[in-house]
Amino acid sequence: MKKPFIALCLLALFALLVGPLLWVLYTSLTDFNGGLTLANYAGAWKDANISRYLFNSVVVTGLTVLLNLALCSLFAYPMALMDFKGRRLLYGLLLATFFVPWEMTFVPLFDVCVKLGLDNSLWGVVLPSCVNAMSIFFLVDAFKGIPKSLFESARMDGLSELAIWRKVAMPLIRPSLAGLAIINFVSSWSLFMWPLIILRESDKYTLTVGLSYLSGLFSANLKFLAAGSVIACVPSVLLFLALQKHFISGLVKGAVKG
């Protein structure tokens, strides 16, 4: 292929894939006469309650990522390294939920959350989504990659299993933990259907639910909506640009585990 043709294709794809995002950015930064302004951000932040949604999203994503790493790595440790009764059964159960789309269970899931008093609360978003089979499989693989001799010598030193998990195993799988954190950050930050179902009051909305609510209002201010959308993109885009390599390999590994 000729160079100019390649360049043309590259630019056309850029317009198609990034153009819409730039258009939203432009919309958010201009007033109705086309002049540059930050007023839409101020309006979105205060009048459209974006500050609240952002806070909720940060809380939900932060808690989800941290709990996911802590709880799933605890679970994965004996699954990868200990031999105990019922291990195969557990593996089977994990695999079952892995293949079932969670969406088909949202009604009983909602029931459980109501009974536990979790409806219309951020915990109601975090707790059902912080533990999943994919993360556990991901970490089982990571633990299995550690040379067995390291565990044996730690046991000789008299460390308890919990101490081995914390002081030996966890530091050794740090790259995997970082990859998993990225996967869960992206999916939690983007989560929409479940928070839409479980959160009733707009003060509890995360960014995705809040912006969807804004976009559905008949009187929606499209400029505020654009500004809010940009705000919702900034954290993941910045994280992506800062950690590109880890980001991509993390997302791909997460998908391939399936």
């Binding site: 709880l71 605890l74 679970f75 004996p78 159960l93 088909m104 949202f106 009604v107 009983p108 299993e161």
Partner: peptide, 25 residues
């Protein structure tokens, strides 16, 4: 150490929010 203590926290959430809803559905 009993593996139960490792499995319990995530396992409880998993049972409550994945297995039981699956059965219910």
């Amino acid at each position: 150490i009993n593996p139960l203590w490792f499995l319990l926290p995530a396992g409880a959430l998993f049972a409550l929010f994945a297995l039981y809803p699956l059965y219910g559905a």
